[in-house]
Write a protein that binds this DNA or RNA. Structure first.
Length: 586
RNA sequence: GCGUUUGUAGCUCAACCGGAUAGAGCACCGGCCUUCUAAGCCGGGGGUUGCAGGUUCGAUUCCUGCCAAGCGCACCA
């Protein structure tokens, strides 16, 4: 309908151009809006106000001319000028009825479209370091990222979901060493656990599994380990120097193969946990992309080579630098340290080179907001590699600030003191967790009160939407108990009986669904879908309280059943898209 | 200090590339269950959209300054 009105207005404008009321050069972008107030009709257009200046006339006068030039159309009940120069359109309710037929026919596919035209889009999200279980901050990225990916898929993009696994670097060595030390404890060695190691309980579990699997194979005496190791912080030393020395000691005492085995044990243990966790949360990936692989298969070297060829690398003080400041970054960045090791950024350059080479039309990176300063350098790298940086979209997710009642919950992976996503899911359930996370704009700060979410789950808004769905299911059960059939055809023939205000509002809401999906997808804003579902549920609850559906008159009854079945279908489509269950009873 | 994001009802948040009287939920007050699930509905109070300017038919939205908060400013990842 929107397109229809847009076409009509364009025709009118062309007419005015021919008649000389408008300059031929102007080609306004026509904006058709849903009206907020029913008094303003169904759709409104502001084109007269936009063009008034260039036409050298007042908005209302121009609006009248446009109005007069709009071809008549059976679908248009009337159009009128209002306010400062809006043209308001009133749509024939028969066109609204069509959507019911469409919903009942298309069923699960209703709302989906092909706007994406099969363009290849990659969405990379979560990508948390595999040094511990996901916490509630990652949960927001997971819920948001998967919702964005699923929305894009729903409107016709070919979507690939990817998790970048940072399985290289110092943090992973600290993890491996942490596992080894806990393992030594299990072997009976008296270990003083470093202050900078990973202290979470999960490290112990992995260490025990290692002990179960391999016995004392990796055991070394604590004396040989601690010999000449610089003191830890609590003993007046430096915690970083201490842990780095222990890492080196682990490597030398265990040898390459055994160290690798311990390392893998830690990595795989955590990675499997993360995969399982996300899967249970309704988040599945097509690709888990390993940073180590980039280093091993020469991609990092190749990427640096390409930057060098393009003239963007130089040496200084023993390190190799990428001249990103020439491409908008605030300063140059090191890509190879003076000790010969490439930096994390070098891996990321290679990673984005890979993304480009894999032929995506669009690359979407979803990062925690604390990484926002990282964007210019990645853009610079892509540009230096000769790519169009428009292909890259970085979406930022603000961390949720956790509260327990009034008290702010501090979180630190290192100390093991954090609320995991798994714990949250267990306490509030997957549905509530997803709904909560997705309810808010992702780039907005968010307060997540655990006490509220866990102790008063009945007040959770997710139930409001699910309840509307369950109520419709219940009506249909009542119908079956009374041995009455829902005659869809008879309903369709009697839709004109749906004259109540509640019914008209529901119809309008239903016609909006495909538009909401499209907007939510293209703007990467799944919260719009949540808000829509709440409105639809609200419209339904009001209707439910005001009118009886299972009335004597079969004509009216079937028409109303058509309507609520359509509502049921759209609620289910929306909830399913967000990976939230649609319960038939509550 | 520089960069960046954000300031909307008591609290948590919306507001469609700038649109008409800024909306929901929670909390508060008052109504509605002999009728399809009251996890619901109906009504009410509650706002100088941080402050001050600017741009224009029109600004919560765009620009400038100020105030406040978060984040970033590594040869860490």
């Amino acid at each position: 309908m929107k397109q229809k009105i847009e076409a009509l207005i364009l025709q009118a404008i062309d007419t005015l151009k021919i008649e000389g009321d408008l300059a031929r050069g102007v080609s306004p972008s026509i904006v058709i809006e849903r009206t907020r107030d029913p008094l303003h009709g169904d759709f409104a257009c502001n084109v007269a106000m936009v063009l008034a200046k260039s036409a050298n006339t007042s908005p209302r006068l121009l609006a009248e001319k446009i109005l007069a030039a709009i071809p008549s159309d059976v679908l248009l009940l009337k159009a009128e000028i209002a306010g400062p120069g809006f043209i308001n359109f009133f749509v024939d309710s028969r066109t609204q009825f069509r959507v019911l037929q469409q919903i009942l026919t298309e069923a699960d596919a209703f709302g989906c479209s092909q706007i994406g035209a099969d363009k290849k889009v990659q969405v990379e999200f979560v990508s948390a370091n595999p040094t511990g279980p996901l916490h509630v901050g990652h949960g927001r990225g997971a819920a948001y990222g998967s919702a964005v990916a699923d929305l894009l898929a729903a409107v016709g993009f070919s979507v690939e979901r990817e998790y970048y696994v940072n399985d290289a670097g110092r943090q992973m060595d600290i993890l491996a060493t942490s596992v080894w030390l806990r393992y030594l404890e299990a072997c009976g060695e008296a270990v003083v656990f470093p202050s900078n190691a990973y202290r979470g309980e999960y490290v112990r579990e992995i260490a025990h599994a290692l002990y179960e699997l391999s016995g004392t194979l990796y055991q070394r005496s604590i004396n040989s380990i601690m010999q000449a190791i610089p003191a830890d912080e609590p003993q007046g030393g430096d915690k970083d120097i201490h842990i780095d020395a222990l890492i080196e000691r682990a490597k030398s005492l265990l040898g390459v193969a055994q160290y690798q085995a311990v390392f893998e044990m830690g990595l795989n243990g955590i990675l499997e946990d993360i995969k399982q966790d996300l899967h249970e949360f309704g988040v599945d990936y097509q690709q888990w992309f390993s940073e180590r692989q980039l280093m091993d298969d020469g991609s990092v070297q190749q990427a640096l080579q390409r930057l060098d060829t393009a003239g963007f690398l130089y040496k200084q003080e023993g390190a190799t630098w990428f001249a990103s400041s020439r491409l908008g970054d605030e300063k140059d960045r090191v890509v190879v340290r003076d000790n010969g090791q490439s930096t994390y950024f070098a891996s990321d350059i290679a990673y984005h080179m890979q993304k480009l080479d894999r032929g995506f039309d669009q690359i979407i990176d979803i990062w925690g907001a604390d990484h926002h300063g990282y964007i210019p350098r990645v853009r610079a790298a892509m540009q230096a590699l000769g790519a169009n940086t428009d292909k890259l979209t970085v979406l930022l997710v603000q961390f949720a600030v956790l509260y327990r009642g009034e008290e702010r919950v501090q979180m630190s992976t290192r100390s093991g003191d954090f609320v995991t996503l798994r714990e949250l899911r267990a306490e509030v359930g997957n549905d509530a967790a997803r709904f909560f996370y997705t309810m808010r704009r992702s780039d907005q700060h968010m307060d997540f009160d655990l006490q509220l979410a866990t102790s008063k789950t009945n007040e959770n808004p997710v139930f409001y939407v699910q309840y509307a769905y369950a109520r419709i299911c219940s009506v249909l059960r009542q119908l079956a108990e009374k041995n009455i059939q829902h005659d869809i055809e008879q309903g369709t023939e009697n839709l004109q009986l749906l004259t109540e205000l509640n019914e008209r509002e529901l119809l309008t809401a239903l016609t909006r669904y495909p538009e909401v999906l499209e907007r939510a997808a293209l703007q990467y804003e799944p919260h719009q879908l949540i808000h829509y579902l709440r409105e639809l549920a609200n419209n339904f609850h009001s209707y439910y309280n005001a009118h009886q559906f299972l009335v004597e008159s079969a004509d009216l009854r079937n028409a109303r059943l058509n309507l609520i079945c359509a509502v049921q279908q759209v609620l289910r489509n929306g909830l399913t898209l967000l990976k939230i269950k649609s319960p038939e009873t509550m």
